[in-house]
């Protein structure tokens, strides 16, 4: 049985289709990265899965429960780690966890709190108010709160957005531990590296639907080939190179002050200048090629 099954799900906000015919299946025990630019429909998908948005049409099933009708039963077995920190800042670390243990009907609240304190490595800060914690500690606590009832499925909504690299790495370690225990994870992110490191499979989402899905390495091979050449030059020269590469059927994308010629191993007749930086193709190449160049 799949942990999550979405079929033809549509959700409009006024004239805007936030989710537009979304089909998505997440098998049990994997970590699926939902990768997409801002406005792709990732957060709306997360809200649909927690019953906080009702679809206009389509079918949703989570852990065998039909949504939205049976959403409450699904939420009992599901943990959610939100994008925004919504901890109670004046309340102690342990009380924050205890409240959610009760909301999730955990029988032994004390044991659940202790387990989460260990998970978040905050046992010695248990009686401190959340306000006194560092940003990294708060994020670890937020993650642990979502796991207080040992859920079968965890939704991580942009779990490391806006965090510095050290904190991000800490959280990746915790999410990795969760994966190793066989918990099913659906993780929305727009950080390519996060998806590459943590996700068994990646679904690239844009304009409210999944446009490609597979293991990161397979997606790279399928859409970007083996190599990407980054060329730094004045704008006029970059425009000429871009035209030449595209004449050969190569795909080119902007990369800050440079252009990236994707699949450069197939280039002929000196299209790739000698001073180009040639590197292995990445999921970022795939992401930009599939979702477009312009930021929304």
């Amino acid at each position: 049985m799949a942990a999550i099954e979405l079929s033809g799900v549509v959700k409009h906000f006024g004239p805007i289709a936030a989710v537009d015919g979304l089909d998505l299946e997440v098998p049990e025990g994997i970590c699926l990265g939902l990768l997409g630019p801002n406005g792709a429909g990732k957060s709306t998908t997360m809200r649909l899965l927690t019953g906080q948005a009702i679809p206009d049409s389509g079918e949703l099933r989570v852990l065998g429960h039909e949504l939205p009708g049976d959403s409450k039963a699904a939420r009992l077995e599901m943990g959610v780690v939100p994008q925004l920190d919504n901890l109670d800042v004046d309340v102690t670390v342990e009380d924050n966890l205890a409240v959610y243990a009760r909301l999730y009907r955990v029988k032994d609240v004390g044991a659940a709190v202790d387990r989460c304190l260990d998970l978040a490595r905050l046992r010695d800060r248990r009686r401190d108010a959340v306000d006194e914690l560092s940003g990294g500690m708060r994020r670890r606590l937020l993650l642990a709160r979502g796991l207080v009832h040992e859920p079968r499925l965890v939704l991580l909504d942009e779990p490391t957005v806006g965090l510095d690299p050290q904190i991000r790495t800490e959280l990746w370690t915790l999410i990795g531990e969760l994966k190793s225990r066989g918990t099913t994870i659906l993780m929305s992110t727009h950080y390519i590296e996060e998806a590459e490191r943590l996700a068994d499979e990646v679904a690239v989402m844009t304009h409210g639907r999944v446009i490609s899905r597979g293991r990161p390495a397979d997606l790279i091979a399928e859409h970007a080939g083996r190599q990407t050449a980054e060329v730094y030059a004045p704008p006029q020269r970059l425009a000429e190179l871009r035209a030449s590469a595209e004449q050969q059927g190569l795909r080119v994308r902007p990369a800050g002050p440079a252009i990236a010629i994707v699949g450069s191993e197939r280039a002929e007749n000196g299209v790739i200048p000698e001073d180009a930086v040639v590197r292995a193709a990445t999921l970022e190449d795939v992401f930009v090629l599939l979702t477009g160049e312009a930021a929304e």
Partner: peptide, 14 residues
């Protein structure tokens, strides 16, 4: 401002 209800409604509470 606190997004408290978003967290509560993600739990089995209607």
């Amino acid at each position: 401002f606190q997004n408290t209800y978003e967290a509560i409604l993600a739990a089995p509470v209607d």
